[in-house]
Design a protein around this nucleic acid. Structure first.
Length: 221
DNA sequence: CGCCAGGGCCATA
DNA sequence: TATGGCCATGGC
């Protein structure tokens, strides 16, 4: 367990291909990215289900904020998330709701546009870049920081510094970034929270301690 | 019952 | 720049 890529290989051999992000369309992926902000995915599924069919920008913009909030209510923070979904929808319509058109643009420009939207920060922007548009941005979330701190890596503090830390140490491929982030989340969910001892933990983490760390802020690690 | 989840924004110092 | 408060539901 000496480098970042080794961690990826270990997780991949244990959990296999994850085929993320769970969504039918790029736009539904983006909607999920906003709904899952500080929210469990099970709640996001309830909210997505309430749309009836896969959501579109026109549908979201046609609904009142109150009506949209009612639909996404199970995902929590529904007032601000309703506004955020409308911001996202307006942006996607600038590209004719065409993911292929977005992909053909300069990725740095697209990312900057997403970050400029109210309600989309670094993690949400990079999730969208990677999982909706297939661009190689490594997503940094709380699981990633916790796991690699726990593994003893000295990772930077600022978001983009952490992102570059990972991107420089891995083959620069969107498919690998895609799989790796999914594996980190799956690993965190399957072992490090639910199982008290993690006897089968592929990373040999002592999760009795990990659970203690989980109760602290990341920066205190 | 309390904790927390695949964050982000804003006010304050 | 760096903390702290706020948003809010559902599962355990």
């Amino acid at each position: 367990m000496t480098n970042i890529y080794d961690i990826y290989c270990t997780l991949f051999s244990r959990y296999g291909m994850q085929h993320w992000w769970p969504a039918e369309t790029p736009f539904e992926m983006m909607v999920g990215a906003i709904l899952t902000q500080n929210t469990s995915w099970s709640n996001v599924e309830l909210a997505l289900r309430n749309f009836g069919s896969t959501p579109t920008p026109d549908l979201i913009l046609s609904l009142s904020e109150e009506k949209l909030g009612e639909i996404i209510r199970p995902s929590g923070y529904y007032n601000q998330k309703a506004r955020r979904l409308k911001n996202l929808s307006r942006w996607f319509k600038l590209y004719n709701c065409d993911a292929e058109l977005v992909k053909s643009e300069n990725p740095g420009k697209i990312r900057a546009e997403l970050l400029a939207l109210d309600g989309i920060g670094f993690e949400t922007a990079d999730s969208i870049m990677l999982y909706a548009f297939g661009k190689p941005y490594f997503v940094i979330d709380t699981y990633t920081k916790r796991l690699f701190n726990r593994l003893g890596f000295k990772i930077p503090e600022k978001y983009d510094d952490i992102r570059l830390f990972f991107e420089r140490r891995l083959p620069y491929r969107d498919a690998l970034f895609n799989e790796f982030h999914a594996l980190i989340v799956i690993h965190a969910k399957s072992y490090c929270r639910k199982s008290p001892l993690c006897l089968e933990c592929p990373l040999k983490l002592k999760c009795a301690y990990y659970n203690v760390f989980c109760r602290q802020k990341v920066k205190s690690l």
